[in-house]
Design a protein around this nucleic acid. Structure first.
Lengths: 216, 216
DNA sequence: TAGATTGTTAATCGATTAACAATC
DNA sequence: TAGATTGTTAATCGATTAACAATC
């Protein structure tokens, strides 16, 4: 069905949101939904939903709408939720530990298989069911386990060097939480920079712009 | 200088990134930079930089470029880094604690003044220098301290109800980490939904789309 | 002054929305 | 069949890029 190929980034960014909303509807026992109904729930236009979905194929049926459960499965498959990419996390500070525990990697096509930290005092400590290893072990670990995705929760000063090293060890995708814009020019390497601080700062801006003005 | 007003969301989202890069340059002792040089570092076009900056005023000088330090200060001021919005955080689980410890609120115009959790066993425990309070105390706290921003690190089931209650207590902006699309129709309320899971899922998608194909 | 680089207008490109014929 | 709603094409809107006159 997939007439896939070169889907725009704007469409891709919306897919996980469709997936979540359809999951909710499915859980609530809703069987079918029209693009108009869905558009009201999601606060976007029905046109956009139909346009987005038709990047991948005709999942709907005229006069009926979309079957919630199978549309959700289709989108999940497109996103790759049924994959099991071995994933490692580097940096077991507050944020690294929280990400390891808080994110459900399995439902997003990833399997967290290793956690590493440069601080030897953390070695052996467990996070969830995974023991923290020293960063010296990364190379050996990659050679035997072949992880594909790396989550970076490390200080910005080390980020580029560690990422470059990991590329050499077979990592193909980076989920980067460090306060640094990781960019890798190798072909076929993907980077998702998170930048929580930037997200907060846009909220500060908007708080500042409010109609009533800041009560200062 | 600010000929502010209705700046597009695309421009706003880029501002914190300009602010970061200019901070780096300033720290490195760079005094002036042209839009072309900056565009090469940031991997965008010189045109876009000039266009973006001119939404707020003419910060550059023909034949010279931009003065790094003062441009950074201007952008910081536009974003509101010199504000001190009192901020509370609800939900002191793994993620809540990590956000409280990991994010530098002060440099982003926010001052973290309270942390709350519904679990009475956490009451009194400290996160950084802040003691966790029970959620029952939120109302009294808001009445005396008048926080303006709330960081939500709570399960999705409670998010809408808690947010609605907080609006009644004077909260104007939400930084929402819960697995739920918070939307508030009150005029003058701002919401920044983070959705780390969605971010990972787009990375899974791109990992899946790679040229060589997944080595499955 | 001559050279460099901005601020700003015009051109292009892409994304969103509207419209409607196809069809279940 | 008639009604509903999709898939898809065309129209609109906004964002990005290019070009260049203004000016330091």
């Amino acid at each position: 069905m997939a007439k896939n190929g070169n889907i725009s980034a704007s469409v891709i960014k919306r897919l996980p949101r469709y997936y979540r909303f359809l999951g909710e509807l499915d859980k609530q026992g809703v069987e079918r939904i029209s693009s108009r109904e869905l558009s009201e729930k999601m606060k976007l236009t029905a046109s956009q939903i139909r346009q987005d979905l038709n990047c991948f194929g005709g999942f709907g049926q005229q006069g009926y709408g979309y079957h919630v459960q199978s549309l959700r499965e289709e989108i999940g498959h497109i996103l790759g939720v049924d994959k099991e990419y071995p994933t490692i996390l580097i940096g077991a500070g507050n944020l690294g530990k929280a990400i390891a525990l808080h994110i459900n990697f399995e439902t997003r096509g990833c399997r967290l298989v290793g956690i590493f930290d440069a601080n030897p005092r953390l070695t052996g400590e467990t996070v969830g069911s995974i023991a923290i290893r020293h960063t010296d072990e990364i190379e050996g670990f990659c050679n035997s386990e072949h992880p594909v995705i790396a989550v970076l929760c490390i200080p910005k000063a080390n980020t580029q060097a560690i990422a470059d090293k990991l590329v050499g060890l077979g990592i193909r995708s980076f989920w980067n939480f460090s306060h640094y814009d990781l960019s890798i020019d190798h072909k076929g390497i993907e980077v998702e920079n998170v930048h929580l601080g930037d997200s907060l700062l846009t909220l500060t801006y908007r708080t500042n712009q409010m109609p009533e003005g800041p009560a200062e």
